[in-house]
Design a protein around this nucleic acid. Sequence first.
DNA 1: CTAGGGTTAG
Length: 615
Amino acid sequence: MMFLQSDFNFLLNGCTSFKQIKQVHAQLLHRGLDQCCYLLAKLVRTLSKLGVPMDAYSRPVFERVTSPNPFLWTAMIRGYSLQDGCLSQSVGFYCRMRRAGSRPLSFTFSALFKTCGAVKEMGLGRQIHAQTILVGGFVSDLYVGNTLMDMYVKCGVLGCARRVFDEMPERDVVSWTELIVAHAKGGDMELAEDLFGELPVKDKVAWTAMVTGYAQNARPREALYIFERMKNAGVLTDEVTLISVISACAQLGVSRYANSVRVVAETSGFGACESVLVGSALVDMYSKCGSVDVAFEVFEKMKQRNVYSYSSMIAGFAMHGRAHAAIQLFHDMVKLEIKPNHVTFIGVLTACSHASLVEQGRQVFASMEKHYGVAPSVEHYTCIVDLLGRAGRLEEALKVIETMPMEPNGGVWGALLGACRRLKNPSIARHAANHLFELEPNAIGNYMLLSNIYASAGMWDGVSEVRKLMRERGLKKNLGYSWIEAENGEIHQFSSGDTIHPMYTEIKRALEDLLNRLKAHNGYLPKLDSVVYDLSDDEKKRLLMTHSEKLALVYGLITIDGGCTIKIMKNLRICEDCHVVMCGASKITGREIIIRDNMRFHHFCDGKCSCGDFW
DNA sequence: CTAGGGTTAG
């Protein structure tokens, strides 16, 4: 008998299809093992792992057993808990189990908690929590405690999770990490950092949780700092860690560090060739670092590509203004039968938008649902509004907003407002802005944009009205800043009007010199309507000179080797005056300049920008 | 058995 049991155990372990399991089960019945709970539990677990619905096979098998043991009961509970929408069956089996007088196991509870967390059924979770106390012994079980914490975290009640943590008689690194992640996801990195500091033994997952926490909270520099500490602590990197680190690099846009991360990825066996995930992340990272060609190299080297890889590359081409490459890639993926998803289409539509390919964009939009089964969402409508707006068709864009099948959100109105800035149309701008002030009362950028549009139309009453509104709502202008990677990999950040940089006087002198040369050779005149304040022309000129991207540019011109491209990152949208200066600077210095603002990339080369002065 | 993960839009 024992021999047969282990035999069947082995057979079940090797099953990879429903059919095979059925064959093994038939054998089992043949040998008279239809009441062997140990093997039946295994059978149920295997079926559930393969995704066979519980009612299809496991349930009838179970119902023929006269006295199930706790393992078989638990297999049923777990099976239903893993199946979508079967929480009630799962709980039903738990109740039957209790009525039958069977004593639950620790993983009976963990299965239930897992489902409660997945469907955010906190009420039920609490009841089962009470049960664990009632049944006794389980509250102190490490594994039960961890899954219980996880349930409370998923239900969004951090306080309860914390209480469980505090009451656990022993905790392991999983318990700590659970709590760290919970706080990180809630945006409280300070608390996460405190917990991490207290954690006695930090493993790879715990370190990664910190890296990811910073990366997802838009604090890439701290993410990279933690990653450095992790490496120094001798903890090995894996695929998951890399993805977060790569995402941090993408946010920062710093190429030297990015290159070193790529080397780490390749030497740890998770390079673009081996891992689709890392590969796709690298594609995104290089695109956002301004190196769209390197991104494409990585893309081409990848052994496998999926919808993420293609979407990332398409988006990469789009943000660099390479519309045709983006569209070509889209057709390639369709030909290879990789099904595009909603993100893919955002990339394609953005590409059309940045290249003013209105008809092309419309065709893609129309085909989304018809040919690819992707229903346009509000984000896709945003792209269309942007497409029409950039092409100067404001009325049509407005019409789209008024007739779209869902409620327009801030993104949609924002796209319209953005278009009004370039086309200098204060009346539609006001209309869009009014919606935005309702939908996003605290988004400072909208106020700045409207006042910008009023300012360039000379409508100073409008400007002061907007400023009054901002004052009433307690909003302050976002400080603009730019950063640039020095030759040694250090990041130098400049704020507008910054005087604290050690090379400040040198930078200021060089900037004056550059502007004078631009005036002499290119007939440059400061674009005074880029200034939103009603100031004298001289004051406006002075203010324009302090813009952070100009400081960063000059720092780059002075310190970065002549053959290298100057790459500058900026947190806000580049202003028109700075754009003109960058064009001119690329011409008279013969240098290639790339600026990533919060919208897209600008490649300045020989006096021209890849955005075609159209952004 | 429990903890960490990818692409997007103004």
